[in-house]
């Protein structure tokens, strides 16, 4: 190989190297630009499901970010949502349909349907969440976003 050719060859593979290097930087950047499936950064609201499937006088516990949230459908159809972790120790609360109260079975703590602690050991009310129904879908969102 002549000196000239060798120089040319070096230039070509140098160009190839530069391209590969550039590509290895562009790859993560282009991937980064594609928005992820979960479009929003914040778990400030979640969809619980269709309203018609949620029976009156029932409740369920759903995951809201890192925290469990209890969503309640009263006999009259009203929807309510509260943090599901009892303020006494860390048990999950449940809805008592007969008395329309929220109850923690661990030490018999009671809350009313405003989340207020009314009897038993709970020292504080349950945090409230906002429930809305949008196009038949129940959506709950945290209060500090309101």
């Amino acid at each position: 190989m002549s000196k000239q050719n060798r120089k040319k060859f070096l230039d070509i593979i140098l160009g190839a190297g530069a391209t590969a290097w550039f590509a290895s930087i562009l790859y993560p950047i282009s991937k980064y630009l594609i928005p992820p499936d979960i479009a929003d950064a914040n778990v400030t609201s979640i969809e619980v499901g269709p309203e018609i499937e949620f029976k009156r006088g029932s409740s369920k516990i759903v995951r809201f970010g890192r925290k469990p949230v209890i969503i309640i459908r009263r006999k009259n159809g009203d929807l309510k949502a509260f943090a599901a972790t009892c303020t006494h120790l860390d048990c999950n609360v449940q809805f008592k349909n007969e008395t329309e109260q929220i109850w923690c079975a661990c030490h018999n703590g009671f809350y009313d349907l405003e989340g207020k602690n009314i009897s038993g050991p709970p020292p504080r009310p349950l945090a409230k969440y906002i429930v809305r129904v949008a196009r038949g879908i129940i959506v709950i969102s945290s209060e500090d976003m309101a």
């Binding site: 950047i29 980064y32 500090d144």
Partner: peptide
């Protein structure tokens, strides 16, 4: 209310975030 959550979102949900 959003800054911390969005940074968490960037590092955990966005590819190469």
């Amino acid at each position: 209310t959003t800054a911390f959550e969005s940074v968490k979102f960037i590092v955990s949900k966005v590819e190469f975030g």
